[in-house]
Design a protein around this nucleic acid. Structure first.
Lengths: 260, 260
DNA sequence: CGCTAAGTTGAGAGATGTCAAATATAGTGG
DNA sequence: CCACTATATTTGACATCTCTCAACTTAGCG
């Protein structure tokens, strides 16, 4: 069953070609219980007993290099992927070949849930740096759900969380201006980095201005200008992708100006 | 267990007050198998045997009048609701009391799935006209999932569908201009009405310009102007909320101008 | 019959997009 | 190691789109 992961995915026609390498070695496998991400990732919220049942299985690990695709929009949905390290973007390719970024994923976050509806991934997952992931066969998860009572709730809750995440992005896109969008984005990143033990106030962006812009519904020039505006206001220090949040409270205010 | 539905929901503080009436009579109950919506609604995609297991239970029906709330943001998540007739809007209240519409739901569509993540609804459901709904206790659905193998997939697939729906709304908000947004909105409505046996080309909008605008991320004046522009281009005939799509192909083109 | 809410339309302001140029950076091949 | 190329980022000038504010119309309702 895991062999399916090694198959070259059925590729849809597209203008941007991402390479999908065939792993050269048999994937390493990992237990959930010994994983340093267990409090953020799939097991989060599971009872002891259920984590144990998860552990009867091991999940294949795989490295994905910067710029490579983990899966492409339209590929058959077989796995849910947990990010072990590094950052991914999820993007949808529009009919004209441009793509729109629909999310960024970091360690402990799960990707691919949008594939269930159609049996094929609705978006592509592209590594923004060298990454490592856990491949969780969906079929296994289904089986487990029948035996381990809470397992199903976990999956369902994860999906619901994804819905809520998208809700808030919709709010952002629907009712916020450029400064508010970028502030919201940075504060969200900051919070997620903090939860992972990194500094909340100083970090390196893994994505380009264009990718941020695509995600936030604005042009890359506007993203750049807004960074500069924040720097001018003394809220941030910006050096290309290196960001230092000088005044988190001020940033929050600028974001709550309209939200409040 | 059904009694919970009759409880007045715990209300969060808000500026807009929606009335939540206490039903005066014991709710009527309905079988899925005899429902005229069975091909659109929950049973869609279920095997015979599983529909039967659904039918061991009956779901409480309830009427919700125009302007009333079925549930409010923050209410405890107990039910998934299927629309039997009429139209709802889902809306989130921002901190300043304005609300943002996150979706419109019509017959056969399921509401409330966003409540799972937090155990509380993430949005409010407001009836845009007199409506009737089926209340499906989530706990029952969970139980069923253990026995009926496909039931769990159905719920999960429904959630995944919701994620995909929000994906496309994000794309819309992120990369389309006013005309494209309204065209996409009208074509989506048209298609859903058609699937329900109504005319695809002539219909009555149940929502105000302001609600459309909130959903599409634009001001009500811009919505109105865009309607007028479409009428001028000979694509639509617009008389307040009565819409006739004169040139569906043209509308599609105007919407695909940027998408193509 | 007047009141209120919804919708339409106009004029001007403000925000963001577009196009273009300059600079910086990283990776490549000689 | 260096020059060179491609890419990312910043910034300016101007165009365009959408918002804001305001007036007016229409329809529904007590």
């Amino acid at each position: 069953m895991h062999a399916a992961m090694l198959e070259a995915p059925s590729r849809s026609v597209r203008t941007t070609i991402y390479s999908v390498p065939v792993p050269s070695v048999i994937a390493i496998k990992t237990h959930c219980s010994s994983c340093h991400l267990r409090d953020l990732c799939l097991p989060c919220g599971l009872a002891e007993a259920d984590v144990d049942s998860l552990d009867g299985l091991m999940f294949a690990r795989r490295k994905v290099k910067a710029g490579e695709a983990l899966y492409l929009e339209g590929d058959k949905f077989l796995f849910i992927y947990a990010v072990r390290s590094g950052t991914f973007k999820a993007s949808l390719t529009l009919a004209d070949g441009r793509d729109q970024v629909s999310g960024f994923y970091m360690a402990g976050e799960l990707m691919g849930l949008d594939g269930l509806a159609q049996g094929a991934y609705a978006s592509s997952a592209i590594a923004l740096e060298d990454t490592e992931i856990c491949a969780i066969p969906y079929s296994l998860l289904s089986e487990l759900s029948s035996s381990a009572a809470n397992m199903q709730h976990v999956v369902t809750r994860l999906m619901s969380r994804e819905i809520v995440r998208e809700h808030s992005l919709m709010m952002l896109l629907g009712s916020m201006n450029a400064e508010e969008r970028l502030a919201a984005f940075l504060l969200n990143l900051s919070q997620r980095l903090k939860a992972r033990g990194y500094s909340a106030h100083e970090f390196h962006l893994r994505m380009s201005r264009a990718e941020i812009g695509s995600y936030l519904g604005m042009k890359l020039e506007t993203v750049s200008r807004t960074f500069s505006a924040f720097a001018l206001q003394g809220l941030l220090e910006v050096d290309k992708r290196h960001i230092r949040i000088v005044n988190p409270e001020g940033l929050k205010r600028s974001f709550e100006l309209r939200m409040r």
